[in-house]
Structures are given as C-alpha cells and as structure tokens.
C-alpha cells in the first residue's frame, strides 16, 4: 500500500493518458511520443548524475562547499555558481537533486538560485541556438538582464528563507541523515 501511495501521482497521470487515448487519440499519441522521448533522455542522464551526486556527498567535505558557495563566499561564490550552471550538463530537472545536496553541504540560497537560474536560462549550447534564431542583440540583452534578475531574486529569497525557513523541508533532511 505504501508503494501505491508513493506512486499516486504517476498513476493519476497514467489515467489522464488513458482518458486522452479514448477521447483525443491523436493528442494522446503525440503526448506518448514526447514522454517516450524524454524517458529515453532521462534513462541516459539520470543514473550518472545520481552517482556523481553520491560521490560528491562522500568525498567533498562540508567546509569546502561552505567556503566556495556558502554565504561568506561573496563574488567568488556567485562566479562559481554561474559558471557551473552554464556548462552543458543537461535539462533542469537534473539540477534539483544536485542543488539539494549542495544546500545540505552549506551552499547559500542566493548562490543556488543563481546556479539553477544559469542552468535553465544561460546555458552555453542554448545561447548558441538563441543567437542563431533571435540574433546577438536580443540574446545579449536577455543574458545581462537575466543575470541581474537572478542575483536579485537569489538575494531576496535568501532574506525571506532566513527569516522564515521551510521547517517541513528541514525536518525531511534530518530524516534522511
């Protein structure tokens, strides 16, 4: 029963697919093909990413992460987070568990928002495609504005979450230890 409860949302989604297959078969086919495509990608990317995370969890000491990415890391932390995010490392959902383990190790919220944001919005391969279709002016302006926005959003989130931390999430982390 516990397993069923854990997989309640995927099961719900499966029912939506079945409903769609009955009433809108062509949409259902398209959706299934997209899902299959993404599944292949995930099957290839997720296992190595999780193993890397496990290795990081074991080998990289907490004080190093704190020094590089913690709240005292200043400009250096911002630059490292930004640089790590822009590397060609795959879709955003890969970054969530990675960010969680960096936060547990002492990275600051500001830096992690910048990391996630650069990962999603400022990825190098993605910028190449953007320049090709929307031009260099559009792309550079969006790049600069997005970077400023990420620093602001990160700082604001750090401020809010420090005053009122997410207790539920913190309790969950302690559970996992």
């Amino acid at each position: 029963m516990g397993l069923l409860k854990k997989f309640k949302s995927p099961v719900l989604i499966a029912f939506v697919f079945i409903g769609l297959a009955i009433w809108m078969p062509s949409t259902a086919t398209r959706s299934s093909l997209v899902t299959l495509d993404y599944f292949k990608e995930m099957a290839l990317i997720i296992p190595p990413v999780f193993i890397l995370m496990g290795l990081m969890e074991i080998w990289i000491p907490k004080d190093k992460i704190q020094k590089w990415l913690g709240s005292e890391s200043g400009m250096k932390g911002v630059v490292i987070s930004f640089a790590l995010g822009t590397l060609p490392t795959g879709p955003l959902y890969v970054a969530f568990p990675m960010t969680a383990s960096l936060l547990r190790k002492g990275a600051s919220i500001t830096n992690m928002v910048i990391f996630l944001g650069s990962w999603a919005a400022l990825k190098i391969p993605q910028l190449m495609v953007e320049i090709k279709f929307l031009g260099i002016v559009f792309t550079s302006l969006r790049f600069i504005l997005t970077f400023i926005a990420l620093v602001l959003v990160g700082t604001l989130m750090e401020f809010i979450l420090r005053r009122k931390p997410d207790q539920e999430w913190l309790d969950n982390i302690i559970d996992e230890r």
């Binding site: 854990k6 997989f7 309640k8 949302s9 995927p10 989604i13 499966a14 939506v16 697919f17 769609l20 959706s31 299934s32 093909l33 997209v34 899902t35 299959l36 993404y38 599944f39 995930m42 997720i46 959902y93």
Partner: peptide
C-alpha cells in the same frame, strides 16, 4: 515518482 510525474506532464 516525481520523475515519472514530470515525464507524464511534459508529454501531456
């Protein structure tokens, strides 16, 4: 579970 959910929603 959340991975599978996201996959399904993306497809939909």
């Amino acid at each position: 579970p959340s991975l599978l959910t996201v996959l399904g929603i993306v497809g939909l």
